[in-house]
Amino acid sequence: MSGPNTEYDPVEVATLSAEALDAARDDALAAIDGAADLEELKAVRLAHTGDRSPLALANREIGALPPQARKEAGQRVGRARGAVAQALARRTEVLEAEHEERMLATETVDVTLPTDRLPAGARHPVTTGAELVADIFVAMGWEVAEGPVVEAEWLNFDALNLGPDHPARTMQDTFWTEPAEHHLVLRTQTSPVQARTMLTRRPPIYVVSPGRVFRTDEYDATHSPMFHQVEGLAVDRGISMAHLKGTLDHFATAMFGEGITTRFRPSYFPFTEPSAEVDLVCFVCRGAGTDPDSDGARPCRTCRGEGWIEWGGCGVVNPRVLRACGVDDEEFTGFAFGMGIDRSLMFRHGIEDLRDLFEGDVRFTTTFGSEL
């Protein structure tokens, strides 16, 4: 029986020779230093530390050596693999830092620049216009009241002194809902909000009610089957037309600027008595009736030379309306008024076509910005 081969020289295993290990280590270190980015370094790691790399194959050969030769060979392989691992770690740290710097340089977003991904939006001018009107009256101590757009026939007509035979109750002006026995309509004015207010609370009452209303009008440059109104109601002791005139003068000044006042022309409305049409002093020619840009040579294009612009209707609340809503007409009086928000905006901003307010063209809306 033969003994162990104590004369075996580990140098005879080519992959474990000092020269072969040094060459494999140097090749790995050179490849690591030459890696330009993390992707290249990943390929170098697989080539020089993977299962089929020269150092990995040399490590497998250690087991074929006699016991007394394994220690020295293992130390040589371990030193070579350790040097490669340290070099990989250092190079990885450097390349990761360079990668982060490149990302910061190439992917930096200047948050102060305007974006072109989503265009800047704007609130609709009718919305901001209604809020402006509400703010004017809230500053005077009034309250904002709201009501449904689908309204009871009694509140829309009967409570406001519009009898069963009144022309406004026909299909020419009113949208009626089906079935007819429900007696519901799309409100033709925001006056039902005033009736609801008087039915649910005791005077003194000072409320303003902006909102949508509906009438069977043609859709053109000056008419729409859906538009917006603001109506005001004041019920208190001693209310007179003088209070109404002062209120509307203040409203006109707040909407159209200093020096804009109103005048009353006698008219008729079933829910007010006496009643009046409200005119504004032309805010372009200031009542002169002439175009200020032509040195008085041409009539004002806004008021057509009249010096006044029709704005809305108003009057002292009819005692029948007060009684229908449970208010003592012997103790209390009141006034009411109503104007078109859309029409007021057309005056205020020189809008020539009412349809521009309802077409939904963002190019029109964005010219108004976020506030009026």
Rank of each mutant, 00 (worst) to 15 (best):
G340R: 12
N161W: 07
T216S: 11
V284G: 00
D37V: 01
V317R: 13
V133I: 15
P319G: 08
A89G: 13
A130Y: 10
A276F: 06
R202C: 10
T197Y: 09
T290N: 09
H48N: 02
G350W: 14
T115G: 08
M198H: 04
W308T: 15
G74E: 13
G50F: 00
A122P: 01
Q86G: 13
T127A: 10
F251V: 04
T197F: 02
L132K: 15
A152F: 13
G305S: 12
L38Q: 12
L322C: 05
V77A: 07
A105L: 10
T253D: 03
D279K: 02
R363L: 03
P10Y: 05
G82F: 07
T216V: 12
E352I: 03
E146F: 06
G129Y: 05
A120I: 13
G232M: 07
D353K: 08
T222A: 03
G141Y: 08
A80D: 13
D27Y: 01
S17T: 15
L233F: 06
E359Q: 12
E371I: 07
T170L: 07
E131Y: 12
R91G: 03
E146R: 12
A69C: 11
E39R: 13
A83V: 12
V150S: 07
P210H: 10
F364Y: 05
V13S: 03
T112I: 05
T106P: 00
W308M: 14
T112K: 09
L184W: 00
V111H: 00
D220P: 04
A297Y: 15
R196T: 06
D236P: 04
C314N: 14
V126N: 08
T170M: 02
T216A: 10
H228N: 13
G338C: 07
I136P: 13
D356Y: 11
V94F: 06
P54T: 06
R263Q: 10
E178N: 02
E181V: 04
A30M: 11
K42V: 06
A43V: 08
I62E: 07
F227W: 12
T188Q: 00
K245F: 01
S267Y: 04
G147H: 04
I351Q: 07
G246Y: 01
V317K: 14
V149Q: 14
M171D: 08
C300T: 15
Q229C: 01
E12S: 08
A139M: 06
P270S: 02
G147I: 04
E231L: 06
